[in-house]
Computed example of a mutant assay.
Amino acid sequence: MTDSCLFCGIVAGDVPSVKIAEDATTYAFMDIRPASEGHLLVIPKRHSRDLTEIEPADLSEVTLAAQRIARTVLSELGADGVNLLNCCGADAWQTVFHFHLHVIPRYVDKTRDRLTLPWQPGVEGDADTIAAVGARLAGALA
């Protein structure tokens, strides 16, 4: 834990939160700036800055907790879908630098859901660029 981390303060009980679930390695609580009704966060109790730094075991536990909670969101809140979102880095919209997954219920009823996409799914990209970037990444991972 770090003294300056908001989410570490929540885990320690020094910062109030609306807790919805907790186990030995994860903590889930309601987002205070929700994109939709029921929007919540799942975090590892152990501090890690972001996706690139989280321990694999912690990432696995957070993801499994998010899956369990997503199922509950769908059944209990009557959500029509759910997004899991992680933002890694300030330019990717990360504002609290403690790894977290957003569990965002999605609703056909837009009075319960204000999240909109920042891009247009279904719009194809340039095939040559996709192939070139894909080859570059595949080579780096080999």
Score class of each variant (00 low, 15 high):
residue 22 E to H: 06
residue 58 D to S: 08
residue 87 C to K: 09
residue 42 V to F: 13
residue 138 A to I: 03
residue 79 A to V: 00
residue 114 R to Q: 10
residue 115 L to R: 12
residue 13 G to W: 13
residue 103 V to M: 13
residue 104 I to S: 03
residue 13 G to I: 11
residue 93 W to Y: 09
residue 20 I to K: 06
residue 113 D to E: 08
residue 120 Q to M: 12
residue 102 H to G: 03
residue 130 I to P: 00
residue 68 R to L: 13
residue 61 E to S: 14
residue 7 F to K: 00
residue 40 L to Q: 15
residue 17 S to C: 03
residue 34 P to M: 07
residue 60 S to C: 06
residue 128 D to C: 03
residue 14 D to G: 12
residue 37 E to P: 01
residue 50 D to R: 12
residue 20 I to S: 03
residue 3 D to G: 14
residue 31 D to V: 11
residue 30 M to V: 15
residue 103 V to A: 14
residue 64 L to T: 11
residue 142 A to P: 11
residue 94 Q to N: 07
residue 1 M to D: 06
residue 31 D to K: 05
residue 58 D to T: 03
residue 15 V to D: 03
residue 111 T to H: 02
residue 89 G to I: 11
residue 95 T to H: 06
residue 101 L to Q: 14
residue 9 G to D: 05
residue 131 A to M: 01
residue 137 L to T: 14
residue 91 D to G: 09
residue 64 L to R: 13
residue 140 A to M: 09
residue 41 L to F: 10
residue 87 C to G: 15
residue 112 R to H: 05
residue 113 D to P: 02
residue 31 D to A: 06
residue 29 F to K: 09
residue 69 I to F: 15
residue 4 S to N: 15
residue 29 F to H: 06
residue 117 L to E: 07
residue 133 V to R: 06
residue 20 I to A: 03
residue 102 H to I: 06
residue 9 G to Q: 02
residue 16 P to N: 04
residue 22 E to R: 02
residue 46 R to Y: 00
residue 101 L to H: 14
residue 117 L to D: 06
residue 110 K to I: 10
residue 44 P to M: 07
residue 107 Y to T: 09
residue 60 S to A: 13
residue 52 T to I: 07
residue 21 A to L: 12
residue 11 V to H: 08
residue 3 D to H: 13
residue 8 C to W: 01
residue 95 T to D: 09
residue 128 D to Q: 14
residue 133 V to N: 01
residue 133 V to T: 08
residue 10 I to R: 02
residue 57 A to D: 05
residue 8 C to G: 04
residue 11 V to I: 12
residue 62 V to D: 12
residue 91 D to C: 02
residue 22 E to F: 03
residue 42 V to A: 08
residue 108 V to Q: 14
residue 82 V to R: 08
residue 111 T to F: 01
residue 38 G to E: 06
residue 124 E to G: 01
residue 92 A to P: 05
residue 20 I to Q: 05
residue 7 F to D: 02
residue 57 A to E: 11
residue 23 D to I: 09
residue 26 T to D: 08
residue 51 L to F: 15
residue 74 L to W: 02
residue 125 G to V: 10
residue 135 A to C: 00
residue 119 W to D: 05
residue 94 Q to K: 04
residue 40 L to M: 15
residue 35 A to G: 15
residue 65 A to W: 03
residue 49 R to T: 15
residue 118 P to L: 10
residue 93 W to G: 01
residue 133 V to C: 00
residue 101 L to W: 11
residue 31 D to W: 04
residue 139 G to T: 14
residue 30 M to E: 14
residue 22 E to M: 01
residue 68 R to E: 13
residue 117 L to Y: 10
residue 134 G to K: 01
residue 54 I to S: 09
residue 30 M to N: 11
residue 13 G to C: 07
residue 48 S to L: 02
residue 107 Y to E: 02
residue 139 G to C: 14
residue 101 L to K: 12
residue 119 W to A: 11
residue 91 D to Q: 14
residue 116 T to L: 10
residue 45 K to R: 12
